[in-house]
């Protein structure tokens, strides 16, 4: 997959300027952290890039293909996955079903094949195996048949990651993947993110915990008041006293 980029993107909600002339490029490899105070525009940026919010001005591209007005599902199908700050899972169904539903282009999702079951069983067996592999990867294999709502918060974060990977996304936007998670689970999630990055997938995550950013990010983007105010390696950006003081407290 080609890089995902946005050019001079603006978005306001009423009188609040959420994004102001934001231009960024996200490579399909490596780990990028987006940091900044509350209301800096981090989640709005991810919402614009993934099609959930339409920008007032500016353009988004995957390679040379403009995706600015594309709906979220179409952007997701091009290999852009995402998770949400407020965990979004299907808590009333099994952990396995959450991953299965995220598998792309399933024949059994079309009306007639679903009704007549043409070629659906084989595909389902294949998808089940792939889903179990992903659950093994996030160490939830033993909980595959439990309801997703019965998982701990940290396990639900891992399940959200597995769902994102099941879409075969090449670049993953993760909104606060370790927020509110117990310390030992944080280590596990970061370990999984490193492993995902090693599979030549790009990871972009929003985070408030600077120690997490230092630990795994290859690149840091600092936002404030809807603008990108700094960008570079963690060593470069996080050592700048004005950044640490003004934006991170």
């Amino acid at each position: 997959m080609n890089a995902l980029r946005c050019q001079i993107v603006n978005k306001s909600f009423g009188g609040v300027q959420a994004l102001l002339d934001v231009s960024l490029r996200f490579p399909p490899s490596g780990i990028t952290a987006i940091i900044g105070p509350n209301g800096a525009g981090k989640t709005t940026l991810v919402n614009v890039l993934t099609g959930f919010v339409r920008p007032d001005a500016g353009h988004c591209y995957i390679g040379a293909q403009e995706i600015t007005r594309w709906p979220p599902h179409r952007i997701a199908r091009t290999g852009v996955g995402r998770t949400f700050q407020d965990l979004r899972l299907i808590t009333q169904v099994s952990v396995l079903d959450n991953v299965l539903v995220a598998c792309p282009a399933q024949r059994g999702e079309r009306l007639l094949p679903a009704l007549l079951r043409f070629g659906v069983a084989k595909e389902e067996t294949r998808n089940c195996a792939a889903a179990m592999d992903l659950l093994r990867f996030v160490e939830l294999e033993s909980r595959a048949h439990d309801l997703a709502g019965e998982l701990s918060y940290g396990q639900q974060k891992l399940l959200a990651l597995a769902c994102c990977l099941a879409t075969q996304a090449s670049i993953l936007f993760l909104d606060e993947p370790v927020a509110g998670v117990a310390p030992q689970m944080v280590a596990e999630i970061l370990d999984r993110l490193r492993a995902v990055s090693c599979q030549h997938k790009g990871i972009v995550f929003i985070e408030h915990d600077i120690s997490v950013v230092r630990e795994i990010a290859d690149q840091v983007i600092v936002m404030d008041d809807g603008k990108v105010v700094a960008q570079g390696s963690p060593a470069e950006v996080l050592e700048r006293p004005e950044i640490m003081e003004a934006y991170l407290g």
């Binding site: 169904v93 059994g108 999702e109 079309r110 679903a114 009704l115």
Partner: peptide, 30 residues
């Protein structure tokens, strides 16, 4: 008809839509 559909990947997507349409869209479902 309803049983076949609800116990298929099609029905799985319907249940995803019922509980969280935003999630369903984020994983590429129209």
């Amino acid at each position: 008809v309803v049983g076949r559909l609800s116990h298929s990947p099609f029905g799985r997507v319907l249940r995803a839509i019922r509980q969280d349409e935003v999630f369903a869209r984020s994983i590429g479902k129209n």
